[in-house]
């Protein structure tokens, strides 16, 4: 550790990346390997994106030893965080990066889906743009395939480009087994027990769309990926309706 300490300020020079990923608000980031950071090829083009690029890179790789005033140091610090984020977006689509993010995903480090029907499905961070300073980070739920805003305001200010538009989709391409079974369960708005007509009509229309998609997939001999229990659920519903006819009627019908 002492090797990396310069004679200026130990706070800034000792294992900058450790400090960065463990500081509050940076929970979504994983640690980028030293080797990845020091391979110039991986940083292609970033020198035009980041101010004080060389100093920022030195800071990130713990070899920063420039004597400068606080204002300058702050600028470099800011650039270092930006640089780390941009490299992060590239790193997490590599094999090692994916594995690290998968571990964090399994631990629900990125939070859980707020949608009730998703049963606390772990989320993944994503950006809606690969260009820096466009939109803040969003969270992707693989169960309902939708995007959500982070709960905490300290995460809502992280740039989405630090995760990118592709990472979360690549993760499920590389680890298809991690893709959760999709659920057909949905919320049905009701008033005094009666379904609300407008919502129910839209729901039926959506169900038709879903069945059409299933037919398409069946035609292409692709697994639909829906929960097995969904089919049972529908059967149960039909059974319930039949029960009204009495036991004999139900027995005959079956």
């Amino acid at each position: 550790m002492d090797d990396f300490n310069s004679d200026t300020d130990s706070d800034y020079t000792s294992y900058w990346r450790d400090w960065f990923i463990s500081s509050r608000g940076n929970e979504y980031f994983c640690e980028i390997d030293e080797e990845y950071l020091t391979d110039r090829f991986n940083l292609t083009g970033l020198n035009t994106e980041v101010q004080y690029y060389q100093y920022a890179l030195d800071l990130v790789t713990d070899v920063f030893d420039l004597d400068c005033d606080d204002e300058m140091r702050e600028q470099i610090e800011k650039s270092a965080r930006h640089l780390y984020g941009l490299v992060h977006a590239r790193y997490i689509v590599t094999t090692r990066g994916l594995a690290k993010m998968l571990e964090k995903f399994k631990k629900s480090d990125f939070g859980k889906c707020p949608r009730v029907m998703c049963d606390s499905q772990p989320l993944l961070p994503m950006g809606q743009s690969d260009v820096a300073n466009t939109t803040p980070v969003k969270l992707y739920c693989a169960r309902c395939e939708d995007l959500y805003n982070p709960k905490s305001s300290r995460h809502a200010v992280i740039d989405g480009a630090y995760f990118g538009t592709s990472f979360h989709n690549i993760l499920f391409q590389v680890y298809p087994a991690m893709s959760p079974a999709k659920s057909q369960r949905r919320y049905e708005p009701r008033v005094f027990g009666f379904k609300v007509h407008a919502a129910a009509a839209l729901g039926r229309w959506q169900t038709d769309e879903r069945e059409r998609m299933k037919e398409r997939l069946k035609g292409a001999r692709v697994e639909t990926g829906f929960e097995a229990e969904d089919e049972e659920l529908e059967d149960e519903e039909e059974d319930e309706e039949m029960e009204g006819d009495g036991f004999e009627g139900a027995a005959v019908a079956q």
């Binding site: 309902c144 939708d146 989709n169 769309e209 998609m213 639909t224 990926g225």
Partner: peptide
């Protein structure tokens, strides 16, 4: 795709 989109209907 095996992990392609399936939930757009929702």
């Amino acid at each position: 795709a095996r992990s392609g989109p399936r939930m757009k209907w929702l």
